[in-house]
Design a protein around this nucleic acid. Structure first.
Lengths: 213, 213
DNA sequence: TGCTTGTTCGGATTCAATTCGGAAAATCAT
DNA sequence: ATGATTTTCCGAATTGAATCCGAACAAGCA
């Protein structure tokens, strides 16, 4: 940001600009959104945009950051509940909360997420990834038996990234070949099967180890 | 395209423009790539760009199409070999070919893929998805026992999308928490475990069915 | 109230995308 | 080969969006 808003009035302006950007983005898409449009919707002069943002790009950046921050704010309070549930249920519940979240405020975030990739959303994803990693860590701690699973970092990486993108891609797809519920169920099953299989293998190799050693 | 190139000379121009676009893109990124740069690198006048492309956006589109087409050209001939291998080996081999492909031509496509999302490449992904679906279908036909797996469409969707994005994201990540080989191994294990678990369940429910019916 | 600092604004400026009309090259018809 | 015709190429001119800037307006404060 070029300058920090000191007065209340200025903070309201900044907020109006971001809100307006979400609206313009949802309506016209990222390429066709102009500074004029944003200023008009926000009810401010074009010049005001540049008081608090270096350029249009940065407005999009801040939108992305806000989206990720709100997503994290959604996930964080769910952690204590989720870690006590069976894994499949936890995955299901997390994703259903996420969908509800996207549909708040007249689907504001859903429309945003449709363009997320064009906006360079991935660049802000690190904090989200961290939040989900924490969820995984805490989950594992509450289910000591799952600690036998091998390659936990790799699998977290795949599930988190693969999961996020499968969901975002599905949301972006105007004619998805499967329903959202099927996707959720599929992801839950996938995670579930993986862990079960790993536990079974751990079991087997444990008894191998006893016999062999 | 605004006009079709008839003469050989014109085809060379179109090609030079696309090549130049890849180079400029790799160097400056999508936002900072200008028509002037592309024209200069291609060794043509700016006006020439608009003889064969409606606008800059369309140049990027064609780049995306070419990238996807080349990826499919990579995959297609591998299918007959892959379908005869164990699933884990097939996944591993496919991904390793893909990495090699990205690193051809001075990592031209790798640099391109880094910006793939910003460029809106997902919009061209349907043919790639189709090619991978075909690979899955053929694989299943060569391994009749795998047909017992439930929700094949859903699982294909998740694995294809999740897999592609996990790989592209990993390649885009300047400091990935896991190595590419670990990622490949993880994806292969994931697919392997899922199928094994499903086969085991199919087995179990088959004997249930015999006992129960 | 008068002074200082923060805020808003929209016309002026800058810069990249796109257009256009004519020149050069290739192709064709005779 | 020569001139007509089509295709290709170009870069100065145009257009329009992004950005800058300095004057006008509001808030905070003594």
């Amino acid at each position: 940001m070029a300058r920090k808003p000191r007065q209340q009035r200025a903070k309201a302006t900044v907020n109006a600009i971001i809100e307006a950007s979400f609206i313009a983005m949802a309506e016209h898409g990222p390429a066709a959104t102009t500074t004029r449009q944003i200023a008009d919707i926000a009810g401010v002069g074009v010049g005001s945009l540049y008081e608090y943002f270096d350029n249009k790009e940065q407005i999009f950046q801040v939108m992305g950051e806000r989206f990720v921050a709100d997503t994290i704010a959604l996930i964080h309070p769910l952690i204590p509940t989720l870690v006590r549930k069976p894994m499949k249920d936890a995955v299901r519940e997390l994703l259903q909360h996420f969908r509800d979240f996207l549909q708040e405020d007249d689907e504001r975030y859903l429309k945003c997420a449709r363009h997320a990739m064009t906006l360079g959303f991935e660049e802000h994803m690190e904090p989200l990834q961290k939040a989900l990693s924490e969820l995984v860590t805490q989950y594992l701690m509450h289910h000591p038996e799952t600690l036998k699973i091998r390659n936990i970092p790799t699998m977290s990486y795949i599930m988190i990234n693969g999961g996020i993108f499968a969901v975002v891609r599905h949301l972006s797809d105007p004619a998805p070949p499967i329903s959202f519920d099927e996707l959720v169920e599929g992801l839950a099953t996938m995670v579930g099967h993986y862990t079960e299989q790993e536990m079974a293998l751990a079991e087997a190799s444990a008894s191998d180890g006893q016999q062999g050693g």
